[in-house]
Design a protein around this nucleic acid. Structure first.
Lengths: 213, 213
DNA sequence: ACGCTTACTGACTGACCGGTCATTAACGAC
DNA sequence: GTCGTTAATGACCGGTCAGTCAGTAAGCGT
């Protein structure tokens, strides 16, 4: 073993981000309750005491994880959609759905989604934060796209502008289903996504789709 | 206080059901990990030891709760659907969806659904059991109805027979959404259900729906 | 080189809880 | 009444873990 790396290094700036990343790994692997601060410390290659040096409690650490991992993705999508006034509404909705499949269902971020759903009821601050910063903005954006589409005659009026979460329900279900029941019933994600898009477009488009397949 | 009720009563027959009901209350309130067997015992007005007299472990107790509360409902629906060969497939699917809204989303059973989703990843025995006894049967029934409908020409062919969970995704989302975000964004369940049914029928029906709304 | 500040450590504490078992008493048989 | 069976009890054990704090040494200024 080389002796040029002392066991203790003083790196005040780098620690918080390293600890948050280590915590993310532990939380998505085991959930909130089953994650021990010592595991996080080990993963971050610091001692337990150091974790408590930068984060008051286990809950504060959890909130930091959600903040750091969810906000960047959602914000970039929302900006792209709101700025684009020319792409037809159906294509924009398809883009949103496909982005969610790629960025959430197709990655370990689905475990973070599961974590928010699982721990939400016992942490009101978490759902409040998540709705304010993530879900509320996302739903508002979908509503905006639907309204634009109706105004242009690209979409037919129906209840989906009042219930935008229903359009993305299959995405969340795909994430949860694959996490929970992968061993029992594997999902063909390609086929699932195509089915979702086709169903959504048929429900939304102003002109009835071509005849039966 | 009247002295005619001794502290200890021997009621071997009544205990299991009472303990399961007490456990249901505790589990839906606090989740699996955070529920203490002593809480369950207190709720059932017995001692901790008595709980272990009737249930081997905490997990066995949890499984009993799910069994007792979910199986009767799912089985009655499935029997009704499979036996009925005359009702049109779209009406049968609507019946399934409305029953789920009434029996799950509209009751505290939605907390049980949340519990399975929340604790599933850390308890493989739970998801295995739930898929075998509940979800698998339900999805198979929906697939059966879709196939019947296609054979009769009531439904147009599409990917939904291969992805039946997508049809019921809005039900699960309604249950989770109301549990998590009720304070932030109340859902008008009547309108939500109507939108879901309308969207599903439009996606499934062989003939395009009547003109735009 | 030397000392001072402070990032960092990890053994420890106190509380919690799943599961056990020796003891107790309710109830029925006679 | 009293005796045997067994449902019911609750103190206890062993293990876990969030959070603490007295002590240690890395790095900087001089």
């Amino acid at each position: 073993m080389n002796g040029n790396s002392p066991k203790r290094r003083r790196r005040k700036d780098a620690r918080p981000a390293e600890i948050v990343e280590a915590a993310r790994k532990c939380f998505v692997l085991n959930g909130f309750a089953a994650t021990r601060i010592e595991d996080v410390a080990k993963q971050a290659e610091v001692s337990k005491g150091t974790v408590y040096l930068y984060f008051e409690t286990k809950e504060a650490l959890f909130e930091a994880v959600v903040r750091a991992n969810v906000l960047p993705v959602i914000d970039s999508v929302i900006q792209a959609i709101r700025a684009d006034e020319t792409t037809p509404a159906p294509r924009q909705l398809e883009f949103i759905a496909r982005t969610m499949y790629r960025e959430i269902v197709g990655t370990e971020r689905r475990r973070l989604l599961h974590l928010v759903i699982a721990e939400g009821p016992r942490f009101p601050w978490l759902t409040e934060f998540y709705y304010r910063e993530v879900l509320g903005k996302g739903l508002e954006t979908i509503r905006l796209v639907i309204e634009r589409g109706e105004a242009r005659g690209e979409l037919r009026g129906n209840g989906l502008d009042r219930n935008p979460q229903m359009l993305m329900a299959p995405v969340v279900i795909a994430a949860l289903f694959s996490l929970l029941f992968e061993p029992q019933a594997a999902v063909d994600l390609e086929d699932y996504i195509d089915t979702h898009i086709a169903m959504g477009l048929r429900a939304l488009e102003a002109a009835p789709a071509r005849g039966a397949v």
